[in-house]
């Protein structure tokens, strides 16, 4: 337990009478892809907000590599090694893909807020190029982000997150709104990172989740109702009725 890279300990968040996070405990172990699934309204977005540092929990704690980061703001958590992607692609859209990655790379360096031009620029540009090649955007490095396709932006978000050299990666619905082909490419990309970086993957696409995840936690009405390997979760009667059953019925 103590060697988890990311550990949520009984996180609780209420909005008025509504309990959106009800003593949520989840841990992401080194090397694993841990998926978090749950029907709409289960409280996934609020939970991610609490992990990333945008929403303050009412109770409970967040540990990053054994260190309590509950009181730290989002930017500090990011520098401590918690990288994330957003549900709706969030990138700096008026600059090139490369510049987005350079921002991430520079964030780790001591001169990240130097108020005068910095002469290490070329080295960063090259490293950014390498990162972009990694996610298949090598030839798109100098394109302005607003002209990239949806899938390309997804990949770019991954590249920027990886450039932070994070201890853990938080993926907020990386497949949302992505077409089938691009979706396949991103799944492959995420799968390729297995073992390199532990991930907490929040995703609606069940095929992708069951293909990628080493373990799955199921969030229903703010509470974790099951955690286990994909086959354990698939077999869990509680999950079937609360979640999968609904999905089946809906189809």
């Amino acid at each position: 337990m103590t060697d988890a890279v990311l550990r949520l300990e009984r996180l609780t968040k209420r909005y008025g009478a509504l309990v959106v996070s009800d003593e949520v405990s989840v841990d992401v172990r080194p090397g694993e892809i841990h998926a978090l699934i749950g029907p709409n309204g289960a409280g996934k977005t609020t939970l991610i907000g609490q992990i990333a540092g945008r929403v303050a929990p009412d109770a409970g704690r967040v540990f990053l590599a054994g260190e309590d980061v509950t009181a730290l703001p989002a930017a500090t958590r990011a520098r401590r090694g918690l990288a994330r992607t957003f549900q709706i692609s969030a990138l700096v859209s008026d600059v090139t893909a490369r510049e987005n990655v350079v921002l991430a790379i520079r964030s780790r360096s001591p001169g990240r807020l130097m108020p005068v031009p910095w002469f290490g620029a070329r080295r960063f540009d090259e490293e950014a190029g390498a990162r972009l090649t990694e996610v298949g955007l090598g030839d798109r490095a100098d394109v302005i982000v607003s002209s990239l396709s949806h899938g390309e932006r997804r990949a770019l978000e991954l590249a920027a997150a990886l450039a932070l050299q994070p201890k853990v990666l938080l993926l907020d619905e990386p497949l949302a709104g992505v077409g089938k082909d691009e979706s396949r490419a991103i799944v492959k990309l995420i799968g390729g990172l297995r073992g390199r970086i532990p991930m907490l993957l929040v995703e609606h696409d069940m095929d992708a989740v069951f293909r990628l995840a080493d373990r799955i936690s199921v969030l229903v009405y703010g509470r974790i109702v099951a955690t286990g390997t994909p086959s354990e979760v698939r077999a869990d009667p509680l999950v079937r009725s609360a979640y999968l059953g609904e999905e089946d019925a809906a189809c």
Binding site: R84, A90, V92, A104, P115, L164
Partner: peptide, 29 residues
């Protein structure tokens, strides 16, 4: 000119476009 061409300036401009992203990259906007 110097400041806008610097890493600080790059963050300042990026934060105008998307403060959330810049925060997620570890900068205190």
């Amino acid at each position: 000119r110097l400041v806008t061409a610097s890493p600080f300036g790059a963050v300042l401009r990026a934060a105008r476009n998307n403060p959330e992203r810049v925060t997620a990259l570890g900068y205190d906007v």
